[in-house]
């Protein structure tokens, strides 16, 4: 565990800009600066253009979407979104993804945050490294036993089984992020609170937990997104009623591979939470990702 923590509580503010501004630039430096700006713009274009292409395709008619000469010059239509949102199965899947994401994240926060505090405060790094195992094992090697296990309990196809399987990803993820976070909090505050008569648990509840709110928020958002993106668990453990969006998208593609507009509208709907998280939570998410980077 100790080795796989990046030595970087990031989200660090940009480093001293005034030094750059203050220093007078020589000729070659200005050329270098311009070159750098051009490179940065190219990189941003390469990263964002496919996403823009997806959103554009979602706003095109089915004729335009398969005609590469159309490019980005077209009159947008909401028809694709209207069509997919009129599809009861899609709306159901969207709701499933939301429910499973929210509930699995909430439950994971409730059990993982106190555990992370215990690991961080009581120096139980070895115990904490158990979570590493959960990240290494290929999910497929767990799916047959899970299916068998949950079939015995009559749970296969239920929301509960999907919530539990997604928690298997988010509990280690939140543990991972929050252990580092609690270790970074000054222990003196909690010690002072305890001297004033709070129990250790009280110190956790009233001092550490409020201070850890930003870390918990970023861990929770990441956990939700990993659940939202998860494909393989629902592919096996869900039924038509509890199917999540990635599985629906996959099925949708196999049945109706020609409806690119509809596919891209559904893919765009899937990307909305991701865009929101990137725009509003970038700084916090970087801190979470650098502490616990995984894809589930």
């Amino acid at each position: 565990m100790s080795a796989v923590t990046t030595p970087a509580p990031s989200g660090t503010p940009a480093r001293v800009p005034q030094r750059i501004v203050a220093r007078r630039r020589s000729g070659p430096q200005r050329v270098f600066g311009a070159l750098r700006a051009v490179l940065i713009v190219i990189v941003c274009a390469v990263i964002s253009l496919p996403i823009i292409w997806m959103i554009a395709a979602a706003l095109k008619t089915n004729v335009q979407v398969t005609d590469p000469t159309v490019g980005l010059a077209f009159t947008p239509t909401w028809d694709n979104f209207r069509n997919v949102l009129a599809d009861g199965v899609l709306v159901q899947s969207l709701a499933n993804s939301l429910i499973i994401g929210v509930v699995s994240t909430a439950l994971s926060v409730v059990i993982a945050v106190p555990a992370a505090w215990a690991v961080g405060r009581f120096r139980m790094r070895r115990t904490g490294s158990v979570v590493l195992v959960a990240r290494i094992v290929p999910a497929i090697s767990l799916l047959v036993p899970w299916y068998y296990m949950f079939a015995q309990l009559g749970l296969v196809g239920s929301h509960l089984v999907l919530i539990l399987s997604h928690m298997f990803v988010s509990v280690p993820l939140i543990l991972w992020i929050m252990i580092g976070f609690f270790e970074g909090l000054p222990v003196e505050l909690e010690d002072a609170a305890r001297t004033d008569g709070l129990s250790a648990f009280g110190a956790f509840l009233r001092i550490a937990l409020p201070l850890a709110a930003p870390g918990t928020a970023s861990a929770a958002v990441l956990a939700f997104i990993f659940s939202w993106n998860n494909f393989i668990f629902a592919l096996i453990l869900a039924d038509e009623r509890t199917m999540t969006m990635p599985v629906l998208l996959f099925n949708f593609m196999s049945y109706a591979s020609t409806d690119w507009g509809g596919l891209m509208a559904a893919a765009t709907l899937m990307t909305v939470p991701v865009l929101l998280a990137a725009v509003f939570g970038q700084r916090y998410l970087v801190a979470g990702l650098t502490a616990g980077a995984t894809k589930g």
Binding site: A14, R15, V16, P17, I20, R36, A37, I40, V43, C44, I47, S48, P50, I51, W53, M54, A57, V65, I225, W228, N229, F231, M245, P246, L249, F250, M253, W260, L263, M264, A266, A267, M270, T271, V274, L275, A277, A278, V279, Q282, R283, L285, V286, L289, K295
Partner: peptide, 29 residues
């Protein structure tokens, strides 16, 4: 540091948070 740093960092976050299945289908198009 440079002007627009925050925007670039935001753009960087999008692919790594995006749904792999959706990304796969997007690239198929």
């Amino acid at each position: 540091a440079f002007r627009g740093m925050e925007i670039v960092r935001t753009i960087l976050m999008v692919p790594l948070l995006a749904t792999p299945v959706a990304i796969g289908i997007l690239w198929m198009l």
